[in-house]
Structure formats: structure tokens, C-alpha cells
Simulated assay, not measured.
Amino acid sequence: MHNINYVLISLLGGLIVPLQLAMINAFRHTSGATQIQSTFFLYVGGAIASLVIALFVDGSIKPPLYQHASWWMWLSGLLGSFYILCIFLAAPHIGATNTLLWVFLGQMIFATMIDSSGFLGMQIKKLDSLKLIGLGFIFIGGLIMIYSEYRHSSS
């Protein structure tokens, strides 16, 4: 597996999400901010961190060549805000584990669709039965997690 470093980087990214979820939940409870206000402050912090990292890594910030970008390419931040808001709304009610499991399943289903179609210029990756079985296992795992919680709450 020659891409092990990228697998490890991806795992690190995955470790950050539940930590972020717990931190923003604590922020929301202690600050009195609503979920959408908490999302805003999260993105302000993210923008500052991105600036510092870009200055450290690239040495400067240059404006993008916006005239070469289509209007829809600027919507990524909007989608990120909706993503964060969705997990912040769900987690207090179904828990971080269930929230992230179902978010992960949604990500995997849509990523599989993107990979198999080459949507937005992504490299096409063949869809096969093993990938579909893998998605099925994630779904079954989610059902087991929900059943486990239901079983413990009803006893």
C-alpha cells in the first residue's frame, strides 16, 4: 500500500471531527451561543487558522484568479457550514457516535457516486460489488449501533 501516508492523514482528519464536535458543544453550552452562532465562530477560527497555516506553509497569501472560477466553486464554504450545522444539530440528540456514523455513511454513498461518475472532474473509480458490500456493512453497523442504544434505553 504505497498511499499509507494519505491513509494516516485521513485517519487524523477523522480523529479531529469528533473532538471538534465535543468542543463546539461545550462552547455552545458555556457561551450561550446557538448552534448556528457556534458554527459561525467555528468558521471564524478556521479562517484565522487557515491564514496562519497558509502564511507558514506558502509564505504569503495571494488573491485567487477568481475570473477563472465558476460561481458554484465558491459554494464550498456554504456546504461546510451546512455540514457542521447538521452534525451540531444531530449530536446532542443521537450522540456523537451515531451522528458521525450516519454522516460517514452519507459521505461514503455520495463519494462512491462521485467516484463512479467522475462528477466535477474527479478521477473515475470503478464501482464494483465489493464496494457495495462495504457500504452495506457500514449501514448494518449503523443499524446495530442504533439497536444497541435502543436496547439499553428501554431496559
Rank of each mutant, 00 (worst) to 15 (best):
A22R: 04
F110G: 07
P63N: 07
A26S: 13
G141A: 03
W72V: 07
N25M: 07
L8G: 10
C86W: 00
S31Y: 08
M113V: 12
I146D: 03
C86S: 05
F56R: 00
L130W: 14
A111P: 05
I94N: 14
L8C: 13
S10M: 06
H152E: 13
S76F: 06
L8M: 15
L65N: 15
L135K: 12
S60V: 05
N25I: 06
W102A: 09
T112E: 05
R28L: 12
I146C: 01
I53G: 09
K126V: 03
Y150C: 01
S81M: 15
G121W: 11
L120E: 11
G46W: 09
L135Y: 06
K125Y: 06
H68T: 11
I124S: 04
M108Q: 10
M122H: 15
Q107N: 09
F82V: 04
L8D: 10
K131H: 14
N5S: 11
M73W: 09
I144Q: 00
I24D: 02
G142T: 06
N5F: 15
V52R: 04
I53Q: 07
L55I: 12
M23E: 10
P63C: 01
W71I: 08
N98Y: 05
S38E: 06
G13K: 00
Y6H: 15
D128L: 10
K62S: 06
D58H: 07
M113P: 04
I16D: 00
S153F: 05
Y147P: 04
A111V: 03
F40C: 14
Q20T: 03
F104G: 01
L55G: 14
F104A: 04
Q35A: 11
L130F: 14
I146R: 00
I124D: 00
H68D: 12
H29I: 11
S117Y: 11
H93E: 01
D115N: 08
S153V: 01
L130H: 12
K126D: 03
G134K: 09
I48W: 04
Q123K: 13
L21E: 03
W72K: 08
L79A: 10
I138K: 12
A22M: 06
S31T: 07
T30N: 12
S70Y: 09
L15A: 00
A26D: 12
T97R: 00
L85I: 10
L55F: 14
L100T: 00
T34A: 05
M23C: 15
G121F: 14
K126T: 08
V44N: 08
L127M: 11
V44S: 06
M122G: 14
T34R: 02
V52E: 04
T99G: 09
A69H: 09
W71L: 08
P92Y: 05
V103T: 01
A90I: 05
I87R: 04
Y150N: 07
F137C: 14
K125T: 08
A90P: 02
F40L: 13
F110H: 02
Q123E: 14
G45I: 08
T112C: 11
L143D: 07
A49H: 03
N98P: 04
